[in-house]
Design a protein around this nucleic acid. Structure first.
Lengths: 352, 352
DNA sequence: TTGTACGCGTTATCAA
DNA sequence: TTGATAACGCGTACAA
């Protein structure tokens, strides 16, 4: 149709245009733009003027075609699919979890100084995984940060096989040669155990996370180990799904089977919050009757009443480090895998 | 250095390679890849085989250089900066809010069918805005979905001026010719008002959101209008920042000034949750002594005790629609701005 | 239906 | 220090 229909269809200025205006060659303009030295200051100035007057902005595609850099990194949320539930509800569940928000926040902290943006990818089903993988193989992102929920998540392996620079949040299940950041989950659980024991709790139960999640298993095992050292080798526990509702259901079951319990350790704050709610529903006082300890020190820990004693996981710092590691791998490839393990910390509040 | 140091540095296959293997021209391979008809089935087959054997994957940069399409859309969180607080803490605040998670979830719903991924951008300060803007101008994303917190956010205007296809979550403050999705916030507030009035509450207070947020203002005004129609023209209100902690502070203040209040309307669920906590701290029963109504129907509404009566904002649907509109604008440009207003719905739970 | 050939906007190499 | 010029990998008129 007529050009008139697209008023501002003005092909945006190219290097060529700037060069013409400045009266130099494309190459020189490119050098100025990319801050390469060896350019006459006077020429630099006139080029800058030309850039301003033409409103020139480099074309990202052309640039990455030749540099082989996309200037973007993927943040892959690699899940297990939404076990039969409504698909969108499952997604909302994942993205609404404070954990996800903290990861995003930390990633920004790590990426911002480099002017890189994260592209979000959800790999929660085979097709979605393929889609994400092909997107990465196309070079639309230079590397991937992966936070996966299931221990048997195939994504890390697939990325590695595809040669995509990758860093994981959480150690890989199989011993893959891949960089990662993680928390010393067992240590964290031990802190909780020692604390509950020191508080004189002797009938303690655990609300564990999904056994398919490595961090969940580590927390459970670490807790049980520590309690065993305190002379309490057999502890009841119920499994839940890291949600508050799941925590409520688990607490309800445990309360039926062990009405005399006096301490609860939950593998994350959301479930701990659910536990507190159920305990109070049953007329039990927290912490007088039952002490509750959570895990993560997320916003959920301070949202309820009473605020939760919890094991702090510095998610933001970890995510920022994950981003930095990836950036580093990109900057000088060929280096071996790095892994950084963070130490948890007990935060005592009023629930214990 | 020596090539040997980079084992798998094998330049990935190009169209050219595939063509050679299949014994056809680049053009034909391209046609097969892009599903263009008029290709002999036999040739199609041999091309596919060649693609498989070479492990060919199209190069995104080269492709978008010629198609002028990035295949990515930006999700811009355009804030006001972190009013003096710690920068990362403010970010975590934003990303941890259930609202953000729901937006992300909905965006995925809208984008997934088209194989497009959202690249996340945080424009919470002048530099960040510039960075985001230039990223978009470089063509790294084909359009932007903007959820901005402040009414006087310059981002929509800047994007429009830059010619970036844009859709807003929430009407623009100034009457810009830009597409958007929004909620009929005043109607929602009216639902809450009518409900509280029907419940016989006559000493009602409001916890409003930041006046700089348009939705917050609309909810406050809508509530007051409706209450005025019920014969209660003057209602006390306190302003907070949409966080639970803010809600707690506001509730505390209101309680001091109006110890006899019997109803609270909060402009979002997080603040309502905070209000409930404070009310219970003061020995007041919800809903017997004080009825509380929230807004959003986010996960916070069902997290606490009692679960909140609230005005449902279908954030996921709205975000999905925002994505679809943007996709549509991209598909056929030159169309006027579309705006879709969603209707809120009262969800009665036990807090009122 | 297939192939040829050009252009997309940069960066980078090599002379000058 | 600067300027030609060759890639980079792909889509697509146009010709065959």
């Amino acid at each position: 149709m007529s050009e008139a229909l697209r008023p501002a269809a003005q092909r945006s200025a190219t290097l060529e245009d700037v060069a013409r205006v400045a009266g130099v060659s494309r190459a020189t303009v490119s050098r100025v733009i990319n801050g390469i030295r060896n350019v006459d200051p006077a020429i630099q100035e006139s080029v800058r003027r030309a850039v301003a007057s033409t409103g020139y902005v480099p074309n990202g595609a052309a640039r990455s075609l030749v540099t082989r850099r996309a200037g973007a990194l993927a943040l892959v949320v690699s899940g297990s699919g939404t076990d039969g539930r409504d698909e969108e509800a499952g997604r909302t569940q994942v993205f609404t979890d404070p954990f996800f928000g903290r990861v995003v926040s930390g990633v920004f902290t790590g990426l911002r100084p480099h002017g890189v943006h994260p592209v979000l990818m959800l790999a929660d089903a085979p097709e979605a995984r393929e889609q994400a993988l092909s997107y990465l193989k196309q070079g639309n992102a230079d590397g991937a940060m992966v936070v996966s929920t299931h221990a048997d998540d195939p994504m890390p392996g697939l990325l590695l096989a595809a040669g995509v620079p990758t860093v994981l949040f959480g150690r890989p299940a199989a011993p893959l040669p891949v960089s990662c950041v993680d928390l010393a989950n067992r240590d964290g659980a031990r802190l909780a155990a020692d604390h509950l024991h020191a508080r004189g709790r002797r009938r303690v139960v655990t609300i564990a996370g999904p056994p398919a999640v490595r961090a969940a298993r580590d927390r459970l095992e670490g807790f049980h180990e520590a309690m065993a050292r305190h002379g309490m080798p057999y502890l009841p526990h119920a499994e839940a799904d890291f949600t508050q509702a799941g925590g409520e259901r688990a607490m309800t079951r445990l309360l039926v089977e062990h009405p005399d319990l006096d301490g609860v350790f939950a593998a994350n704050d959301l479930m701990a919050q659910g536990a507190v709610a159920v305990l109070r529903d049953h007329g039990l006082r927290v912490p007088e009757d039952v002490a509750v300890v959570g895990f993560d020190d997320s916003s959920a820990a301070t949202a309820g009443r009473p605020p939760l004693t919890t094991v702090r996981q510095p998610v933001e710092e970890m995510a920022a480090e994950m981003a930095r590691i990836l950036l580093d791998v990109l900057a000088r490839p060929g280096r071996g895998a790095t892994s950084v393990i963070f130490e948890p910390e007990l935060v005592v509040r009023r629930s214990s």
